[in-house]
């Protein structure tokens, strides 16, 4: 670990850690959004068909089946929910490192200008870059709520373990919950846009050959993820998905 702690000593190292953990978290939100698109798949999924082609197991909404799949993936080599827990641990470590590094570089920057400007400096660059810190906090609060809503079910009325679709509908049919989700997703979109562009800088991935694509890439994925994620509460709230 010494090379890691050594690297982490420096602010450039901290930013590299934020970039790498950011890539992991970006991979997660992308996968999460794609998985949730199962909400729109009509009909039900059957895990076991008998010889005659009739369903031998309980038919599940596709979203619920996908949730069950995530728990089973890796079986029998891994114990039940094993892969899921590995992912959860990796994500948790990534989130902690990401936030811890963010906190430290923020403190470093505050210390670097102990007496501020009387006349606030003009800002030339994007709104996204300026809202990383507050945006990050909103996302953190959202994630906590989200886990209490859908993972533990603490805040979800009539929560049923594994009934992903039902739980989602229950939550999103309340207008203010849907609105909160939408607001949080906009914050995530901004955060992703600057983060996706910024990570290239922090990791030194820079070349005249692809530099102009960095911004396109960041824009594209920020939009894809935001639109995808907003569509779920919107679809439920407006009644498109029942």
């Amino acid at each position: 670990m010494s090379w890691f702690t050594d690297l982490y000593q420096s602010a450039v190292g901290k930013k590299a850690v934020m970039a790498v953990t950011g890539i992991i978290l970006f991979g997660f939100v992308l996968g999460h959004m794609i998985g949730n698109l199962k909400l729109y798949e009509p009909g039900t999924y059957c895990a076991y068909l008998d010889a005659s082609g009739t369903c031998a197991s309980k038919p599940l909404p596709y979203l619920d089946a996908y949730g069950a799949f995530l728990r089973q993936v890796g079986a029998p080599a891994l114990p039940a929910s094993g892969a899921l827990w590995i992912v959860r641990v990796v994500l948790l470590v990534a989130v902690i490192l990401h936030m811890w590094a963010a906190w430290q570089v923020t403190r470093l920057s505050q210390a670097a200008r102990p007496s501020g400007y009387v006349n606030q400096p003009k800002r030339h660059t994007s709104y996204a870059s300026r809202t990383m810190r507050w945006g990050g906090i909103i996302i953190l609060l959202f994630v906590i709520y989200h886990l209490l809503d859908f993972t533990t079910g603490t805040l979800n009325p009539g929560f049923q373990e594994g009934a992903v679709r039902r739980n989602m509908l229950a939550s999103f049919s309340v207008w203010y919950v849907a609105l909160f989700y939408i607001v949080a997703q906009v914050a995530l979109g901004f955060h992703l846009y600057h983060g996706l562009w910024s990570l290239f800088q922090s990791l030194g991935w820079n070349s005249p050959r692809f530099n102009r694509w960095r911004s396109t890439f960041a824009h594209a994925f920020a939009w894809i993820i935001t639109i995808g994620n907003i569509s779920f509460p919107l679809a439920v709230w407006t009644g498109l998905v029942r």
Binding site: V12, P121, H124
Partner: peptide, 16 residues
């Protein structure tokens, strides 16, 4: 970093 400058967040204000 020893001089007490802050950490770069890729704002790009400097370039502007």
């Amino acid at each position: 970093e020893k001089e007490g400058f802050g950490a770069c967040s890729n704002y790009a204000e400097c370039e502007a």
